[in-house]
Simulated assay, not measured.
Amino acid sequence: MTDTVTAKLAELGLTLPEPAAPVAAYVPAVEAGGLLHISGQLPFIDGKLVRGRLGEDVTLEKGADAARACALMLVAQVKAALGGSLDRVERIVKLGAFISSTADFTDQPKVANGASELMVALFGEAGRHARSAVGVPVLPLGAAVEVDAIVAVRPA
Score class of each variant (00 low, 15 high):
22 P>L: 08
110 K>M: 05
67 A>F: 04
84 G>L: 07
128 R>T: 14
49 L>T: 04
2 T>M: 13
1 M>H: 10
100 S>R: 08
85 S>T: 14
148 D>N: 15
48 K>Q: 15
55 G>K: 04
33 G>I: 13
8 K>I: 09
103 A>W: 10
46 D>E: 15
108 Q>L: 03
27 V>K: 09
131 R>Y: 15
103 A>K: 12
89 V>P: 04
83 G>R: 04
143 A>H: 01
135 G>V: 01
73 M>R: 11
64 A>Y: 10
95 L>C: 04
132 S>K: 02
11 E>N: 00
18 E>N: 10
93 V>E: 12
136 V>Q: 07
138 V>D: 12
30 V>S: 01
119 M>T: 11
51 R>F: 02
44 F>H: 13
133 A>G: 10
69 A>G: 02
73 M>H: 09
7 A>G: 02
100 S>M: 00
132 S>Q: 04
93 V>T: 14
137 P>G: 14
152 A>K: 11
99 I>H: 02
87 D>K: 03
84 G>H: 07
38 I>Y: 03
23 V>Q: 13
45 I>H: 00
52 G>A: 03
114 G>M: 00
110 K>F: 03
30 V>W: 13
153 V>H: 06
36 L>I: 00
134 V>E: 13
8 K>W: 06
78 V>F: 10
13 G>Y: 09
126 A>D: 05
133 A>L: 07
121 A>Q: 10
19 P>K: 08
85 S>Y: 01
130 A>K: 10
123 F>V: 00
71 A>S: 09
91 R>P: 06
55 G>H: 08
29 A>P: 05
52 G>Q: 00
106 T>H: 10
75 V>Y: 07
96 G>Y: 12
145 V>M: 05
59 T>Q: 06
54 L>D: 08
102 T>D: 09
154 R>I: 00
37 H>Y: 15
104 D>M: 06
137 P>L: 04
135 G>L: 05
121 A>P: 03
138 V>W: 15
92 I>T: 05
85 S>G: 05
34 G>D: 13
144 A>G: 03
79 K>R: 15
130 A>I: 05
121 A>R: 15
141 L>W: 07
41 Q>S: 13
84 G>A: 02
119 M>H: 03
9 L>F: 11
53 R>H: 10
54 L>F: 01
111 V>D: 01
156 A>R: 12
3 D>C: 06
13 G>W: 12
131 R>D: 13
81 A>P: 10
151 V>G: 01
155 P>S: 11
129 H>L: 06
34 G>E: 04
18 E>A: 10
29 A>C: 11
36 L>Q: 11
73 M>T: 02
48 K>G: 07
14 L>F: 07
48 K>R: 14
85 S>I: 13
129 H>F: 07
66 A>H: 03
75 V>I: 07
20 A>D: 00
152 A>I: 07
143 A>T: 11
80 A>P: 03
71 A>P: 08
60 L>F: 12
78 V>I: 15
88 R>P: 01
5 V>P: 01
85 S>N: 11
39 S>T: 05
34 G>H: 12
136 V>A: 09
93 V>D: 15
17 P>C: 05
